[in-house]
Each structure stands twice: as C-alpha cells, then as structure tokens.
Nucleic acid binder design. Sequence first.
DNA 1: CGTACACCATCACGCAACGTGAGGTGCAAA
DNA 2: TTTGCACCTCACGTTGCGTGATGGTGTACG
Lengths: 252, 252
Amino acid sequence: MQSVRIWKIGKLAVQAGISVRTLHYYDEIGLLPPSHRTGAGHRLYTEDDVRRLQCIKSLCALGFSLDQTGGLLSTRDCSPRQVIEMHLTQLREEMRRQLKLVERLEAIHEKLQHEKTAGIDELLGLITEIEMMETFKKCYTAEQLDTLEKRAQKVGPERMQEVQGEWHELIGQVREQMNAGSKPDEPQVQELAKRWMGLIDEFTGGQKDIAESLGNVYKYDPTIASSRGFDLDATIMEYVAKSWASLNTRKE
Amino acid sequence: MQSVRIWKIGKLAVQAGISVRTLHYYDEIGLLPPSHRTGAGHRLYTEDDVRRLQCIKSLCALGFSLDQTGGLLSTRDCSPRQVIEMHLTQLREEMRRQLKLVERLEAIHEKLQHEKTAGIDELLGLITEIEMMETFKKCYTAEQLDTLEKRAQKVGPERMQEVQGEWHELIGQVREQMNAGSKPDEPQVQELAKRWMGLIDEFTGGQKDIAESLGNVYKYDPTIASSRGFDLDATIMEYVAKSWASLNTRKE
DNA sequence: CGTACACCATCACGCAACGTGAGGTGCAAA
DNA sequence: TTTGCACCTCACGTTGCGTGATGGTGTACG
C-alpha cells in the first residue's frame, strides 16, 4: 500500500512459505543478504530481495543446489542452457539408478511372497540371488540362465559372497602387477591368471559358452562391472587373457 | 587356506571394495565392530564379520540407510516384508518427484530452444510460466488454458510471483483467524475474503468457469497446493467461501 | 640390531541445508 | 512496568563418510 515496501524476516518467511532459519542461512552463505538492517541489526528486505528470493526458490525447486543457484543468479551473461542440459542429464542418470533400485526391490518383494519363511537370512539369500541374475540377464539365453541359477543354488549364497570378495582381492592384485609394469608372461602374473580362470570355472560350472558370454558382458559394458562394485575394465581383462594365453602356449 | 581366517582392516577394505575409513565408521556407530583386536588395538575381523559386511553392503545397495540396515540385521524375528514395502513406496514417491523435475526441465529446455535470448531473466520467466501451467494443466480445457496463458503473459511473470507471495500472506492470515475462532461473518474475516476473491479475479481474468475449476483443483487434490508451496486445505477454502457468502447475502 | 616403509590407531574438521534450542535485545500493548 | 512477541547471534546435531595430522606397529632387509 506504500511506495516503498519493506519486509522484516518473519513476514518474508511467511510470505515465501519458508522458515526464518532458512533466510538466516541464505544470508549467512551470501546467497540472499538483506539490502538493509535496522540500527538494532534487524534484517530488512526490499522488493528486489523478495524477487531474488522467488528466483532462488524456483531454481531450488528444479533441483539445483544453493551453490548452483547462486552461480546462475550471478552470471549475467553466460547462457544457462548448458547448465540446464547438464542438470537434466544428471537427473536422468539419477532416475535410472532409482528405477533399478525399485525393480530390484520389487523382485525381492515378489519372491518374498512365495517364500513362507521371512527371516533375514532368506532375505539376504534372495538379495544376492537377484543381484546375480540381474547382472547376467542381459546377455544370456534362457537355457544358460537356468544353468546358472541351478549352479548358484548349488554353491549357496555364502560361497557366492565369498567369491565376490576373492574377486575384489584378485582384481586388486592384478592391477598392482599391471601398474608395477610386470609382463603378462611373468610367473607371478600367470599365477594370478590361473586363480582368475579357476574362479570363472567355479562360477560357470566349467561351461565355456557361459564363460565367454560373461566375458562379453564385462567387455562391452564396463558400467555393469562398476555397478557390481568391481574395479574392472577392458585393459585388465586383456592383460589377464594374455597371461593365460602365455601359460597355455608354453604348455603345448 | 587356513582353518581360521582373520582379516586386518586394510585387507578387508580391499576385499569388500570399500574404504578403511568406512570400516572405521561402521565400527564407530556400532554397525560392524570387529570381533577381536590385537594388543596394540588393531582391528581383527572374522569370517562372521565379513559375512555381516556383505549383508550391510547389500542392504545399503538397496537404498537403506545405515540405521535401517542395522535394524534389519538386529531384529531376528520380525518380518522384513513390511520394511521392504515401506521402503518401496517411499522410493516410488521419490521417483515421481524426480520424474516431475525432469519433465519440468525438459519443458524449459525446449522453450529455451525457441527463445533467442538466453538471459537469466527470460529463464526465470519461463520457469514461473511452466510451473503455473503445470498446476492448471490437469483440470482445464484447452480453451481455458489458452485464456490463462494469455492472461499470464499480460500480467507478466513479476506480478505472478508477487501474487504468489500475497497468497502466502493471505492464507496465513485466514488461518490465524480460523485458529483464533473467528466466525466467517465477522468483518475482519470478510475483509480477507474480499482480498481472496480479488486475487482470484486478477488471476483468472474474472472468468467464473475458470475460477470454479481452480477451486476444484485445490479442493479435490490438496497435494497440488502443497506442491506449489501453499499451506492450503479444504477447511480453509470452505471457511473463506462461507465468509464470502455471508458478505453477498447481506448485500442483497 | 637398527631402520625403512607399509600399515594401523585415534582425533578432528569438512561437506549440504538447514532444525532446534539457548540466551540476550527491540518494541509495542496492557 | 511488565508482558509478550519478533528479532538477534552463537552453536551443536543431522548422514556417511573424505581427508589430513600425528603417532604407534610390524616386518623385511641390510
């Protein structure tokens, strides 16, 4: 109603639908310092401040961090197009992760319906089972999947988890050798390669086609490996393959 | 290879693919205290500890917090079914939010392609515009939407934002009166009702059908109001409606 | 036997975005 | 003058660790 409109912090908080503490915080980090203060130190916000706050709220509602928001509001010239695109791809990535989680949980939930017992141990068995199947599902035929499932049930979830630990260890050791500059045909590397192939054998029940498919999975989509927690890439797999080959050629 | 297998913290970290600090932390919060320590205080993990760690990793991978994970692992009897379901619904909720964000950003991104200028002000105009349209899109006919869009362009984004602030203020004042026990036909409440209807008028360009639809939006889906940042529910709207009605009956 | 070096230990601060008091003013009504 | 509300400035708590700082251990090697 007056020519100059001024808000104290409480009113502004109500008007913007946020808390006083939030405004304190925005002041603290320099995102929205009030244009004026009273003699007693009370914050006084002008219309410009209010507009800035609206902007901040909008950008935050789009998922930007306060830091990014501040950046967007300060750069007068630079086009926000790129920022938006980056943010968008990032969000989509996040969504994919979420979707995977939900799918996993749904699978577990469904399996839980069939099982009568609902102890924590069964739950964990199901979880490892589903994690495994999920990894393979993309590349195997139904028949192969069936074989793998039987195999997994035979060795049991504990051994599966143990094996996972051994993989981590083994991969670490191989990477060490690689970084140390060891050649693939040196004996200590060949030793690692033997353990490597041994694990694969146990895993696949010695069926070559399955082992090969497994190799392809990791070869053509390294993201799967990292999603399973493995620090694995094409160079390592090639290194081990060479080492294994050097073993076999000598034997012949 | 030996009958009793013991891991020190570094080995276990490598084997599990996590950091030493993480194991320190899990010990600190009591989630995974090692079964033994050496005389010098070095942590010694047994096979049981390793299994527990695998469980923890699995549950975390499913999106449970460390707290929830600890709970799941400690409750031997209670069925985890409910926990899973709760978590699942929560995750789905989260996904819906994410999806909304992505859609909004996509809309903004598309609009940015058409606009030549890419300053921050235009961006903010687009954002408010899209937020508005999104609210309405669910309940209006194409014709009404068109009217609303023209209306929004006419008043401009700044005024739209200002109005939003006034809404917050107004809603707060009405809620105050309600909580204070004021009757709808008391003059100060009627004053608020007048402002309320004035805002709606400005908003809708005075078209009754649009205003009515708007009322229905908020009446039948209060979640929309809260997603727009309004602390609005059916009781408040009824209260204002009564107050407005009391004004009009007196006039006649 | 000493020493070099990797590994282990315990603090303790930092991050994001505030929530939640605690303890002390400013200002207007009763 | 007292009450009471709105405001102020610390300052600690949240989650899941990362990243040093500083100092003790354990073992392999000369």
